[in-house]
Every structure is written in structure tokens, then in C-alpha cells.
């Protein structure tokens, strides 16, 4: 028996705004996702990889400065290396847009593409918790009877998915860029790497939006948690297997893979072929090393199938919107 007054009390207060209510939905979704042990481990892994990237950037930065700690340390072992670093420093002074911009652009292209896989995997784990569970438990009725609309609900869920990929992908990438350049021997590294980070942000924002919407669409397919997760992973894996096979048969089939389409988008944004060409002709030593890259590889990097990728992604988004529209209803 409660010791305090259990009679009904009226409430008089100021209601929160609409965006706060949307954030409440997003936060609840995030909390549900982060309750999973494997999800937390994955996020930690992504941030550890960011630490690795930061270390790489730090070392690259140190190599480009003659009197840096690393160069001095290397000089203790081999004075020729210190002399080589001195040459790089001169070269940095003359071509900063190549030495910093190009290097970081290429590094961040591969880092971005790598961590995107982690984001896709995280979404796969989160998909049952986005809409699927709510469909199974009729929670949509509860949401719809509160002071939020269907659009607010979906926006909240979208923010959940977006923040989740941010934690596993764009967050670590941006953190690596910031800390890596913070530890660089020269403040100008921030300025010279501006293009790389702009590429990261443009590609990241576009891809995260696409992936979040696709995840919502897949999450709305069924009210069975295992089914929706299976659809996501099967689509991802099937696309990955199909893309190299379809090159030899029906190249357009590759666009059925969202991963392939996003890779094409990354190629169009980062233009790594352009960076490699610059590196081949300008960077001492690396030029010879990069001449070993096969021409087909360079050609595929140079000519992304952007139009097909964008068209395929738009079709996928339209399908996702159709599914969400038809499935996310109070009835």
C-alpha cells in the first residue's frame, strides 16, 4: 500500500517542443540499440580503428618534417633516413596541396570505405529495433495516439539510424582527421587537408542518409525481427557476391547492390584515381611504386558509374518509402 497520496493529480506545465519529442523517440531507439553487447563492441572497434588512423596520420605528418621527433628517432638508426625526411620537408614546402591533400584524400577514401562496412553491419544489427519491433508489438498505435505524427515517428527512427552510423563511421573518421592533424607538426595541415575532410563529409552525409532510409525500409518489411535482419544482411552479401560476377555478364546487375552504388559514389566524390595520378608523377619514390598498379584498376577508379549508381539508389529509396508508407500505420 503506497504511503503517499495516490489520488489523481492534474498537471500544469509547459509542453516540450516538437523537436524535443522527436529526439525522445530517437534517444529511446538509440538506447535500445546500445543495450546490445555486440553493438557496443562494434562501436568500440570503430573508434579503435580511428585511433589507428590517427597514428598513421601522425606518422605521415612527422615524416614530412625534418626536425620532428620521429625523424630524429629514425636518424639515430640511419642518418640517410633523416636526410630523406629533410628532402620531403622541402617538397612539402613546395607542394603542400600534393603532400598533405593528396595523401590524406587517399587515406581517408580507404578509411571511409572500410568503416562504411562497419556502419552497414551496425545497421543490420539495429534493423530489428528500428520499426520491426514496433510493428510486432503494435507500438505504432501508441505512438500515433500521442502528440506525434507518423512523420515525427519516422524522423525519430531516422535520427536513430543516422546517429548509429555516425558512431560507427563518420564519427571515428572525423575524429581521426581532427586528432591526426592536431598532432601534426604544422597547423597548416588542417588547411591543406580541408579537401579530404570535405570529401568525407559530403560522401558521409549522403551515404548515411541513404543507408538510414534503406534501413528503415527494410525494417518495415516484416514484424519478425530475424526476417528483417536477414533481408539486410542477405542483400548486402548477395550484392557483394553479385557485383564482380555481373561485370562479365550483365553489368547493370551490379547496381542491385547498394554497397556497389555507394562505392561508385565514393569514387566520384574522392576521385582517388586523380590523386593517384598526381602521386605517381609528383611524389618521390612513390611514383615508381604506384606504376605497379594495374591499368584496369586505375581505369575502374577513374570512371565511376555515377549515373547508374544514383539512379539505382533513388529507385531503392523509392521502394523503401513505399514500404514505409504502407507498413507503418496504426492498423
Amino acid at each position: 500500500m503506497p504511503l503517499h497520496d495516490t489520488s489523481y493529480q492534474h498537471w500544469e506545465g509547459v509542453h516540450l517542443g516538437l523537436w524535443r519529442r522527436r529526439w525522445v523517440i530517437a534517444r529511446a531507439g538509440l538506447r535500445a540499440c546500445l543495450q546490445g553487447k555486440w553493438m557496443r563492441h562494434l562501436i568500440v572497434l570503430c573508434w579503435v580503428s580511428a585511433l589507428g588512423m590517427t597514428t598513421v596520420l601522425f606518422l605521415v605528418g612527422q615524416l614530412l618534417v625534418a626536425n620532428s621527433i620521429v625523424v630524429k628517432w629514425m636518424g639515430n638508426f640511419n642518418p640517410a633516413l633523416q636526410a630523406f625526411a629533410g628532402m620531403l620537408t622541402t617538397w612539402l614546402e613546395q607542394h603542400p596541396e600534393i603532400s598533405v591533400r593528396t595523401t590524406q584524400d587517399v587515406l581517408f577514401y580507404y578509411f571511409c570505405i572500410g568503416l562504411m562496412r562497419a556502419g552497414i553491419f551496425a545497421l543490420g544489427m539495429a534493423i530489428p529495433l528500428l520499426i520491426t519491433r514496433d510493428l510486432a508489438s503494435n507500438a505504432i498505435i501508441i505512438y500515433s495516439s500521442k502528440a506525434v505524427s507518423r512523420g515525427d515517428y519516422l524522423l525519430g527512427k531516422f535520427i536513430t539510424a543516422f546517429v548509429l552510423i555516425f558512431l560507427t563511421w563518420l564519427g571515428p573518421v572525423c575524429a581521426a582527421w581532427f586528432v591526426g592533424n592536431l598532432l601534426a607538426p604544422d597547423w597548416r595541415f588542417f588547411w591543406h587537408s580541408r579537401v579530404a575532410v570535405a570529401h568525407v563529409l559530403v560522401f558521409g552525409a549522403a551515404s548515411m542518409t541513404v543507408l538510414s532510409l534503406l534501413a528503415l525500409g527494410v525494417s518495415a518489411i516484416s514484424s519478425k525481427e530475424k526476417s528483417t535482419a536477414a533481408v539486410w544482411f542477405m542483400w548486402w552479401i548477395f550484392g557483394g557476391v553479385l557485383a564482380p560476377i555481373a561485370v562479365q555478364t550483365q553489368p547493370w546487375l551490379r547496381h542491385l547492390s547498394f554497397n556497389f552504388d555507394l562505392d561508385q559514389l565514393a569514387l566520384a566524390v574522392f576521385r582517388p584515381a586523380h590523386d593517384l595520378t598526381i602521386a605517381q608523377t609528383n611524389i618521390p619514390i612513390l611514383g615508381d611504386m604506384l606504376r605497379g598498379v594495374r591499368p584496369q584498376t586505375l581505369a575502374s577508379l577513374a570512371t565511376p558509374e555515377l549515373q547508374g549508381a544514383v539512379a539505382a539508389l533513388l529507385v531503392m529509396l523509392a521502394l523503401a518509402a513505399f514500404l514505409i508508407r504502407n507498413r507503418v500505420r496504426p492498423e
Binding site: A32, L129, D134, N138, A139, I142, S145
Partner: peptide, 13 residues
């Protein structure tokens, strides 16, 4: 407005 639906519904977890 408050509403108690007829069917069983809740937010899981």
C-alpha cells in the same frame, strides 16, 4: 486526449 487501445500494444524492451 488519452487512449487505451483494445488490442495489446506496448513499446518493447
Amino acid at each position: 486526449v488519452g487512449y487505451t487501445p483494445e488490442q495489446d500494444c506496448h513499446i518493447p524492451g
